[in-house]
């Protein structure tokens, strides 16, 4: 841990007494934390630079006008000023944090492309094709119910009306269709995962 010879409180007091060098020490001591804090909110170097500058202009004015009441909290005080200026910035622009692709931060580093790549698309097609072939092996009544439910997205009520059986029978056929599918898949060690 870095040992700081002169505390912030002493530096602030010296600055208020006219020691300009004290401000330089304070800025260099805290600039990275304050700058990073602002950048973490606005994600734009130029805006961060502006807010950082405005924050310290306020700090300088308040200290010179003797408005600052030292309670050993110089950094939190500057952070609070920076935070308020960040809020002012967003309020003024009336928008949420904006990402543009001109700076170091690229939106594409956090946004993924959800579309399947060529390989995954081929695997998906293969899996669907395998599944169709297994379904074809099912008894006709079970296949009919499963096709209507999974591929035509019909409700069991609609299926029962279409096939002329009760809802419970349709549900039972669906259940047996799934059980039989699992049996075939297990028996033949078919892998149906993408």
């Amino acid at each position: 841990m870095r040992h700081e010879l002169i505390t912030d409180a002493v530096l602030v007091r010296n600055y208020m007494d006219g020691d300009e060098n004290a401000l330089s020490v304070l800025i260099h001591r805290h600039k990275q934390r304050i700058y990073s804090f602002i950048y973490s909110k606005v994600f734009d170097r130029d805006i961060t630079e502006d807010i950082f500058q405005d924050a310290f202009i306020k700090v300088i004015k308040n200290l010179k006008l003797g408005k600052y009441n030292e309670e050993g909290k110089f950094l939190p005080w500057v952070m609070r000023i920076s935070h308020n200026l960040v809020i002012d910035h967003f309020r003024k622009n009336n928008r949420m944090p904006k990402f543009d692709n001109s700076g170091e931060f690229s939106i594409f580093s956090v946004l993924g492309d959800n579309a399947l790549n060529a390989e995954k698309q081929i695997i998906k097609d293969q899996v669907e094709c395998d599944l169709r072939r297994i379904i074809e092996e099912l008894p006709e009544d079970q296949k009919e119910v499963l096709m209507m439910r999974m591929y035509k997205d019909m409700s069991f009520k609609e299926i029962s009306e279409r096939t002329g059986v009760s809802i419970n029978t349709a549900l039972g056929r669906m259940r047996y269709a799934l059980i039989n599918l699992r049996k075939v898949i297990d028996k033949n060690n078919i892998i149906l995962t993408n």
Binding site: E20, K31, Q32, Y35, E49, F52, I60
Partner: peptide, 19 residues
Amino acid sequence: LNPKKETVDFLLNYSKALS
């Protein structure tokens, strides 16, 4: 993540100029 040297210099000069 540090401010530009120009920004820091501006602040120090501003401080000196403000009375």
